[in-house]
Design a protein around this nucleic acid. Structure first.
Lengths: 343, 343
DNA sequence: CGCCATGATCGAAACGCTTCGACGTACCTC
DNA sequence: GAGGTACGTCGAAGCGTTTCGATCATGGCG
């Protein structure tokens, strides 16, 4: 309700002095500054957002284009959205949410109306129609995820290749010589983000490097199919003693459920690692070793980069975040009996 | 890039004529109007958002305060957020997302800076700190969900009491005389939204009205506990032949999984209804009858009310949406043998 | 003692739009 | 033919900031 004019009047100074006192962009006598601050506070003065956008060079608004569409939306998506908003607030930025449906139209609109200062793109797919657009949009953009063609873009993501290697190495170092990967359901590898693919390929490559056998299986949202998939993966020859899951929480839960049913004990009979998980695997039974995908990490970094980009254009770059390994006791040495027992 | 000034110049008319031609707020000669429209289009003119906010009486921005916090976030939350954004876009409104963490501070900020025209409050809890705030905020607000004290508020929600009655009646009408309800996990009934409570209580009340036996059980996120809960509920006396689930998708899936394991056939041995579900129960095996909670319905209505509120203050009111019943074959007549078989 | 930075403050010009009042002009109506 | 009513258009006044000179003391320096 109170405008800068009211504050100036009450403080007996000019409007510009109030502006400078509050923004600190020019020196103001300490006595004046504190008096203005006190009055502004007392009057509950808050600068009008519209006026600020119009006069200033910043709107203090970021667009967030997220994979929000009716069919799929997982808790993981939500975690990323939350992380972006939280990170943005640390820089006094608010976030305007754009849906999948309106992805390109929305981006165009918020850009051409100068509503936002920059764009954060979440959950980038290999071939994402938003990517070509942000490249041309002449407004800073940071992608969380890595599209097929990263030319001219600023991207942040977990280093899924390194995560896959870390998973393989953790098992190989313990002496496992045959390991399996349960990945995402089928469709994901065709149309979705490209990190499942990156993970899968790096997993196989690392296993080969380490001279151990690896098996890959796509999971399924159908429980019956899923059980069959798991059974088949664990029946590979030589029999896998290590299992890595890189898929949705619900699927991992179902796999664990199924494993419990088969009487396999973890880690005695089978070592298990949950990879690139945004959820808490320490609450699983048994708790699972995990290489987490932390939304806050990628998003904090993305917003940091965005803030830097607002000052001066950023050099395009793909920044991959180092994966970490958290042990919860679900990995151990393979039972030596297992290998010779299957001739 | 192009401003209204550019358009006016190119069309050889004044700025105000352009404004009126494009907004239609005053009559403009058709020839002039179409020429201006063509030029605006050609120049790619888009009104500057900041200038519009400052000069106009609308910011074309809505705040959405959602239960976004690190611990819990379900696909259902996401569906509601999506639905609000989609509905808002139909009125040329964008949505600024506020997190749980910054709930009250954020609301205050977007209000006092006049960044938004109104506030949509999602997933209202019984005793929600946001509720008292929006009541005082002197800016239109619409709640999706019903708080404990609805005084002076505009609320929209599914009629959960009616949904519970519908569930009970559907089973009672088929001849079931003992039915069970698996609700949300324990904590929800203390702190969460109040619809689980409303559903639970109406369920019991309606069963009593119909003269049939009802059992209620809180579910659990722990699978072992969950199985015990389900077993106990189905072991009630007289043995329930109908089961209603009003809980999260993952839990319903787990229950179905467990039921499949026990060899109970649906609906021959047990009739099952999924209630207030935001997900697709027709893909369950077997597909489940459902009384859906459709995010788009509540949110469309909430945004409609908001748009009306922007024109002239709305009378406070709680608007409850009629529940619907979708049959997928999971409900049938109870086996007559069952009742006499347990003397 | 005069000159010039330096600090503190102010006035005014944007920023791009909406909207109000006013001014013609043309057309009716009596 | 005078008066009235639309309609179509324009100029200008905001809206509330930010920011760029300009102004006026003050104090250090040669």
């Amino acid at each position: 309700m109170a405008s800068i004019h009211d504050v100036a009047q009450a403080a007996g100074v000019s409007i510009s002095t109030v502006s400078y006192a509050l923004s600190g962009k020019r020196p103001v006598a300490e006595a004046t500054r504190s008096r203005i601050a006190a009055i502004a506070d007392e009057l509950g003065y808050q600068p009008n957002a519209g006026a600020r956008m119009l006069a200033g060079r910043r709107t203090q608004l970021l667009a967030l284009t997220a994979p929000l569409h009716a069919e799929t939306s997982t808790p993981a998506h939500m975690a990323f959205v939350l992380a972006v908003v939280t990170a943005a607030r640390r820089y006094d930025y608010d976030v305007v949410l754009l849906t999948e449906e309106e992805a390109t139209g929305g981006l165009r609109r918020v850009t051409s109306t100068k509503l936002v200062d920059g764009i954060i793109v979440l959950d980038v797919a290999v071939d994402d129609r938003r990517v070509g657009l942000v490249r041309d949009l002449s407004i800073p953009a940071v992608l969380v995820g890595v599209p097929g063609d990263t030319d001219g873009l600023v991207c942040v993501d977990l280093d899924f290749e390194a995560a896959a290697r870390l998973a393989v190495d953790s098992l190989a170092d313990e002496g496992h010589t045959s390991i399996a990967l349960i990945g995402d359901p089928h469709g994901i590898y065709e149309r979705g983000s490209n990190f499942p693919r990156r993970f899968r390929d790096a997993f196989a490559a690392r296993a080969a490097e380490r001279g151990i056998t690896s098996t890959f299986a796509e999971s399924s949202r159908n429980l019956v199919e899923l059980r069959a998939v798991v059974d088949a993966a664990l029946a590979a020859v030589p029999r896998p003693t290590g299992l890595v899951m890189q898929c949705a929480e619900t699927i991992q839960l179902a796999v664990m459920e199924h494993l419990a049913g088969t009487g396999l004990s973890i880690p005695a009979d089978l070592s298990v690692i949950s990879a690139a998980s945004t959820f808490d695997t320490s609450k699983f039974s048994p708790p699972l070793d995990v290489i987490p995908l932390v939304p806050a990490e990628s998003c904090d970094r993305a917003v940091d980069l965005m803030m830097r980009a607002l000052d001066h254009p950023l050099d395009p770059a793909v920044e991959l975040l180092e994966p970490a390994y958290h042990s919860h006791g679900s990995v151990g040495r393979p039972q030596i009996a297992a290998a010779p027992a299957a001739p």
